[in-house]
């Protein structure tokens, strides 16, 4: 066991597949910050100062081991000209698709990060967080993968049709998104982000067959990840990954974010000493959890996957819903403190 003095030490130790003082906790609190400040969601995200303040407060309040530079998934869609809808009680979401299925290959050009006021606010937030917290804890930046963003850009059905019926357009679409994804990831790293979460639900076997992943998606992810400065968390956003886990590991991430529908113990046996697992609390069920439920869920994950480091407790989707109570988040933090202290002698079979 290594004595960690900061969240950064704790996280780096577990990423090196060694046991820190305790299992790190990443609560992905983005829109939850509006609740923390008692603010309307649109207003909250309109000023980086709000997000910085909320992140600082929430990290302390819930014993979180990271700061989350993520605003909402649809923010990238807005950089491509999409409309953002701001509901009162949920994350901002994408409006109608902006790319038509009959678009001409080669005509799609990636936007410049510097031209998007929304993305610049994210960069300002990351910079502000870095100034306030230094290297005490990781600041997490987020990108949507070049193969997942088209779901918002085109709509799921048109995107599926494109993949299967218009391979030339698919290639052109992905190239443009890949350039944007790399530009956006590196901009966040330059602003002070410590790591990038690469959300790629489309690659999950909940979405596509293993064969489709191997033939069409694996190389795109590998190429993209190689051009983003490490470390990277490959996050399936609650999609399944066991059938393609070797491919994901081969694409080069340090961390894999996994679904609550998959057995973290089985994944640990495959990933031990190779990639760190991030997950896999059920964020939807969390909305109605008692303190006992929170403790049981955290304890179960640690028992199955805590030994030897290589584990970060988190939800399985990358966003804590507003409907999760503060008491539940506190209970999750307390359970990690109680059951996640290394060495995990209580998990040993006698």
């Amino acid at each position: 066991m290594i004595n960690a003095t900061t969240s950064m030490d704790r996280v780096l130790t577990t990423l090196n597949h060694r046991e820190p003082d305790k299992v790190p906790l990443f609560l992905p609190l983005s829109v939850y910050g509006a609740k923390e400040l008692g603010m309307d969601i649109k207003k909250y995200f309109s000023d980086p100062k709000n997000v910085i303040e909320a992140q600082i407060r929430m990290t302390k309040k819930y014993n979180n081991d990271c700061y989350y530079g993520f605003f909402y998934a649809a923010i990238e869609f807005s950089a491509w000209g999409g409309e953002i809808i701001f509901p009162k009680d949920s994350p901002p979401t994408a409006g109608e698709p902006v790319l038509k299925r009959n678009a001409v290959p080669g005509t799609i050009k990636p936007p410049d990060v510097g031209d998007s006021k929304s993305l610049l606010r994210v960069l300002e937030t990351i910079q502000g967080l870095k100034e306030r917290i230094g290297n005490s804890a990781p600041i997490i930046g987020v990108v949507i993968s070049p193969t997942s963003l088209p779901i918002m850009q085109m709509g799921f059905d048109n995107y599926f049709d494109t993949i299967l019926e218009r391979p030339d357009f698919f290639k052109s679409l992905i190239r443009a998104n890949q350039e944007f994804c790399i530009q956006w990831a590196n901009a966040q790293l330059n602003a002070g982000a410590t790591a990038i979460t690469y959300f790629d639900p489309f690659s999950s076997t909940s979405m596509v067959t293993k064969d489709m992943y191997n033939k069409m998606l694996h190389n795109i992810a590998k190429e993209t990840l190689q051009r983003i400065r490490e470390p990277i968390a490959f996050h399936l956003a609650s999609g399944s990954c066991i059938p393609i886990i070797e491919g994901i590991i081969d694409s080069g991430p340090d961390v894999v974010g996994i679904s609550c529908h998959e057995d973290i113990g089985q994944l640990k046996s495959i990933c031990r000493d190779r990639v760190t697992l991030l997950g896999n609390l059920n964020g939807i069920e969390m909305c109605s959890w008692t303190r006992q439920d929170s403790e049981a869920a955290v304890k179960s994950i640690i028992k199955k996957a805590g030994a030897g480091g290589g584990l970060i407790i988190s939800d399985n989707h990358g966003e804590i819903p507003l409907q999760v109570s503060e008491e539940t988040l506190m209970a999750v933090g307390e359970a990690v403190n109680k059951w996640g202290r290394y060495p995990l002698t209580w998990t040993e079979v006698h």
Binding site: F156, D157, I163, L164, T205, S206, M207, V208, S240
Partner: peptide, 11 residues
């Protein structure tokens, strides 16, 4: 059961 993907369901 997780043995068929959304793409297959869609098609």
């Amino acid at each position: 059961q997780g043995t068929v993907s959304l793409a297959q369901i869609y098609i």
